[in-house]
Design a protein around this nucleic acid. Structure first.
Length: 530
RNA sequence: GACCCCAUCGUCUAGCCAGGUCCAGGACACCAGGUUUUCAUCCUGGUAACACGGGUUCAAAUCCCGUUGGGGUCGCCA
């Protein structure tokens, strides 16, 4: 849109006092910034480490909660013109009516006759006296034609809608009313939103007509689904956690959770299936249970080490494509080529495997220097212990060694922990199948190789990749018939406790000579009886 | 249930609007083989779809109708 002279407006729709918060707003800003999407108009929000207040653009304020007098002006106008009316039903009454309708298997529709039976004067008097009430829009009894840039034209019969609330009892406008007023006042020309808003568009159109406003272009984007066909939503994390708690069989985790159980928050959460745990508690429990929570929010993907341009690319591809076989593209291409007529009409399932494959390709396309820089930034934010415990030189070596093995910025972090753990914390489980195979199988055994190798490595003075290649190479020629694996695997187990690590020479260099020798000795001792 | 929308490989999709070049192309996933000091890669090959039924037409994945299936909405949430 910007290319065609459009402007991107950020408006904070915080008309629900219960749900809005500064954190939520800053979360939105952080996500947009990370994705590389800054807004032309909207609130000036502080970037990390900055302080900023005020507005960009001339049609602010951009927090709806700060525009209440504006809404009131238009609300009064509609009431005055008899296009809207005050209604005094309580939420309980309405709830009962809906339930009754459901029980009788009939569609519920707000019946305005009771509210309108009260004389206008009296309604105003009761309102002035402070009696709680809402304002409802008097929906005209005519079908509504929606013209959508993606879906085409659809006619909604008037009886599908009713006199919806446009001002809540707390004096805040509803979303429907606020967006219609703001879209007009902020000169909005294009409303591009999810398909779940399609019916709302009918309401908004009616409101625009009643208020004499201009009509923006509407485009309703397809929804994103989980692989199982359910709608992808924040609730999925909660669902995953509940399922994990329910299925947990690990006694240690159970014990931990027993203690946790008494925490009020967790108890309340378990009691109420519709409630959601706060992020910290949820991730703690997920950690204990060893279950990964699905990435749902933009920030989840950032934490997981996806590249913002890859996420943009993949998301754009869900429901849109440039035609032909082109799949990989950057922001500029998208800006230039995007058009509504190539947007899909049906929902798309979110395929994490494909996103991961895209991210893998993008990370492999990075230069080592670029990767090291991104990985460093990622660790500074999410894994500071790697920064603290490694020298800058060794950190960079680690990053470089992991580059080719990384699909995300995060996926080698867990398997790299042995680099920063103390030598004493490496455990050798003599009963482990893999370990036995490597250490005890073959002739000579891996353990024998390890013991023979110890003095050789102790004698290495040039502890570099080249130096180790020379030393190990010679050893392998002499003792293992040139088969590096026969020696590298026992050594890998000795220094990592596992069979997984970067290339062995790099691993040893990053670890350092002292730790390498220490760990070899500990391993030999631990396996002495095996 | 009512109303609205949608329908190509397991998934995202190209092709459809201007019917033949499509016994349907790509990507991811999957399977098989190969490379590799572990893990991860990498290379080669393969399986796999026009939902169904009627029309229209010389000809339909492409146009029309119906059926089935899927989705959205039906809040003092946004």
């Amino acid at each position: 849109a910007r290319q065609h002279g459009g402007r991107f407006i950020l408006r904070i729709e915080d008309t629900d006092q219960k749900r809005s918060s500064v954190e939520a707003t800053m979360g939105i800003a952080r996500d947009l910034w990370w994705l590389g999407l800054d807004w032309d108009e909207g609130p000036k929000l502080p970037r990390p480490g900055e302080s900023a207040m005020g507005d960009k653009g001339e049609f602010g304020p951009y927090f709806q909660s700060q525009r209440l007098t504006t809404y009131k002006e238009y609300l009064d106008k509609l009431v005055r013109e008899d296009k809207a009316y005050r209604a005094f039903d309580t939420p309980e009454q309405l709830d009962a009516q809906r339930k009754a309708a459901r029980a009788e298997n009939r569609n519920y529709r707000y019946d305005r006759t009771a509210a309108l039976a009260i004389p206008h004067q009296e309604r105003e008097r009761r309102a002035a006296a402070g009696e709680p009430h809402v304002i409802r829009f008097k929906l005209p009894d005519e079908p509504i034609v929606i013209r959508d840039a993606i879906l085409g034209e659809a006619t909604i019969p008037a009886e599908q809608l009713d006199d919806f609330v446009i001002c809540k009892a707390d004096g805040f406008p509803t979303y429907h009313f606020a967006v219609v007023v703001d879209d007009e006042l902020m000169r909005v020309t294009h409303v591009i939103r999810a398909q779940e808003h399609f019916m709302n568009t009918a309401r908004h159109l009616r409101l625009q007509e009643a208020l004499g406003f201009r009509r923006p272009v509407y485009a309703h984007l397809p929804l994103i689904f989980n692989p199982d066909g359910s709608k992808m939503s924040k609730r999925d994390k909660d669902k995953a956690l509940r399922a994990a708690v329910k299925q947990n069989k690990d006694p240690a985790a159970s014990a931990f959770l027993q203690n946790f159980w008494n925490h009020d928050a967790v108890t309340a959460w378990l009691a109420d299936k519709d409630s959601q745990l706060d992020v910290d508690t949820a991730s703690t429990i997920a950690d204990v249970l060893g279950v990964p929570l699905p990435e749902i929010n933009v920030d989840d993907f950032r934490r997981s080490g996806y590249l913002p341009e890859v996420l943009c690319n993949y998301l754009a591809l869900l429901g849109w494509n440039p035609g032909g076989d082109v799949e990989k593209f950057g922001r500029d291409f998208l800006v230039e080529r995007f058009s509504f007529d190539r947007v899909m009409k049906g929902p798309a399932k979110f395929d994490r495997a494909k996103l991961l494959a895209f991210n893998h390709d993008a990370i492999q396309a990075l230069s080592t220097e670029e990767f090291v820089g991104l990985f460093r930034a990622h660790c500074i934010e999410f894994h500071p212990e790697f920064i603290e415990k490694l020298t800058p030189e060794h950190f960079d070596l680690l990053a470089a060694a992991n580059h080719k093995r990384s699909k995300t910025l995060d996926d080698q972090v867990r398997s790299s922990r042995f680099f920063i753990d103390g030598d004493e914390s490496i455990e050798y489980d003599a009963a482990d199948k893999n370990l036995r195979k490597v250490m005890c199988g073959g002739e000579p055994t891996g353990r024998a190789h390890l013991e023979a190798l110890l003095p050789v490595l102790e004698g290495v003075s040039d502890w570099s990749v080249a130096g180790l290649e020379a030393a190990l190479g010679a050893f392998v020629q002499q003792h293992a018939g040139g088969n590096l694996g026969k020696v590298a695997q026992p050594l890998r187990i000795a220094v990592t406790g596992t069979t997984i690590s970067p290339a062995i020479h790099e691993t040893l260099v990053i670890l350092g000579k002292t730790s390498t020798i220490n760990r070899m000795r500990r391993c030999i001792t631990a396996l002495a009886g095996a």
